[in-house]
């Protein structure tokens, strides 16, 4: 089986699973985790876009480059940033959930029904 297919398949599986968790979950933290799983899947997808089977690190030097299969470095750089951003988002989310638990006394999303009128 092609390695790329595994990566793509598992990445998309993770994304779908993340969304599924977020939609079906009742507990706020579970929903947050669902979003996180979705993000992870996305990151994996991005990395696998740049990945070449059997490729090497993209190091450029004054010597002539002997490796032909250089992995694209940009997606990896992007993913690093995206991971950091994901962490920040998760932190903010958890902070909000903590406050919600304090004020509502529950983490059940169905109980958050203040804003309708």
């Amino acid at each position: 089986m092609d390695a790329g297919l595994i990566f793509y398949g598992s990445a998309i599986f993770l994304m779908v699973m993340g969304v599924f968790i977020a939609i079906t979950g009742r507990h706020l933290i579970k929903i947050l985790l669902g979003i996180d799983v979705f993000d992870t899947g996305l990151n994996l997808l991005i990395v696998s876009f740049g990945y070449i089977n059997g490729g090497t690190a993209p190091i450029f030097s004054k010597y002539p480059n002997i490796f032909k299969n250089v992995v694209d470095p940009v997606p990896q750089a992007l993913v690093l940033t995206a991971i950091v951003i994901g962490v920040a988002e998760m932190a903010m989310g958890l902070a909000i959930v903590m406050q919600i638990k304090e004020k509502f006394g529950t983490c059940n999303i169905a109980k958050l029904k203040e804003l309708k009128w």
Binding site: A22, I23, T24, G25, I31, I109, L112, K113, K116
Partner: peptide, 13 residues
């Protein structure tokens, strides 16, 4: 606009 967050997410999907 009366659902909870999961419903809104469902709209997007």
């Amino acid at each position: 606009y009366m659902g909870d967050a999961r419903v809104y997410l469902f709209y997007i999907i």
